[in-house]
Simulated scan of single mutants.
Amino acid sequence: MEQEYETIDLREILFLIKNNLLAIVASTVICALLGFIVTTFLITPKYEASATMIVNSRQEQTANLTNDMITTAKNLVATYSIIVKSDTVLDEVIDQLGLELSYEQLEKKVTVSAVDSTQVMKIAVQDENPAQAKAITEAITQIAPPIIQDKVEAGSVKVISEARAGERPVSPNKKMNTAIAGLLGLVLSVGVVFLREMLNNTFKTDDDIQKYLGFTVLGVIPHVEMEG
């Protein structure tokens, strides 16, 4: 026994969207507006401060740069990242600045990444207070070098660019959140329209009777409104 599947052709899809266009547009705009309001008024903005440091190995500075050295440098930055974000460094930062933060809370604010696959690493700190983000970054650049030199036995650790905090928040992203909320509203509204259509088993036109029941329509009784 063959199972029959109900299908909706492109014309029916366009017809559904056209008939419900106002509701779809309204839902999209409302969701986008809600996303903007939540992002603007309910999410606390965060600022980022960053600094860059370079760690030189004990190899001769005149040695030619090879692919192996580049690979080693990239791997070393991963090691430096672990050290910078370790409790050895961050607990000292907390004590030095008198922060009311646990090690776990501060560790989540700090990110360390390689710059262009070199031994230059970028230390970034995000915080609700730009001044505090800058202070934490500065403290890390002061405390981390001697620890890195001791643990990795690096030749030197130097700060390339001092800590600097951005004037504008890095999160949340108002444009992206608004766009995502609007897109979500669009998808949900279109989904509701199609779901309602799929659950509607009434016959709306004589074509529906012929399509679903296979009967030929011989005549249609018109609906006439009588004036009282």
Rank of each mutant, 00 (worst) to 15 (best):
M198A: 06
V120K: 06
V29Y: 05
Y47C: 05
E6M: 13
C31Q: 05
E167G: 13
E2S: 10
E6K: 12
A73S: 14
L99W: 13
E12P: 00
Q105N: 07
E48H: 04
T205C: 09
S113I: 11
G228H: 10
T79Y: 11
E162V: 10
P169W: 02
V192T: 04
E162I: 11
T66P: 01
L195W: 12
K174N: 11
S113Q: 08
K211V: 00
N129G: 04
G35I: 00
Q132E: 12
A73N: 13
D207C: 06
L101N: 08
T88A: 10
V38C: 08
L186C: 08
L213V: 01
E153I: 07
L33E: 05
A133R: 00
I143K: 01
G219V: 04
A114T: 00
S102T: 11
I221A: 06
N67M: 11
Q149F: 04
A78F: 13
T52K: 10
L34T: 05
T79F: 06
Q105G: 05
V115N: 01
S189F: 01
G219M: 06
E197L: 01
V193W: 03
A165W: 05
L76D: 12
A144T: 04
G182R: 01
D9P: 02
T39D: 04
H223E: 15
A181P: 06
Q3D: 10
E197F: 15
A63K: 07
D91N: 11
Q126D: 10
K18A: 07
S102G: 05
V55W: 03
S189D: 00
K211Q: 07
A133D: 02
V187D: 04
I148L: 14
D208A: 02
S102Y: 01
T40C: 04
E227F: 15
K174F: 14
L16Y: 02
S189Q: 00
L22K: 14
V77C: 10
R164C: 08
K46S: 09
E60Q: 14
D207M: 10
G185P: 04
V157C: 08
E107G: 05
V93Q: 13
N20A: 00
R58I: 12
I30D: 06
I70F: 01
A49P: 04
V190L: 15
L34I: 14
D68L: 14
V170T: 03
I180L: 15
D208K: 00
I54M: 11
K109Q: 10
L184R: 03
I13Y: 01
L99N: 07
D208Y: 01
D87F: 14
N173C: 14
R196M: 13
V110P: 09
H223T: 14
K134L: 07
V217D: 03
G185N: 06
N177A: 10
M53L: 09
E12G: 01
V157D: 04
F15P: 02
K85R: 14
I13H: 00
K109P: 02
E104T: 10
Q149M: 08
L76N: 14
T40W: 10
T137L: 02
L65A: 07
L65M: 12
A165P: 02
S86P: 06
Q105F: 06
K211I: 00
S57D: 07
S156L: 01
M176Y: 15
V29D: 04
Q59R: 09
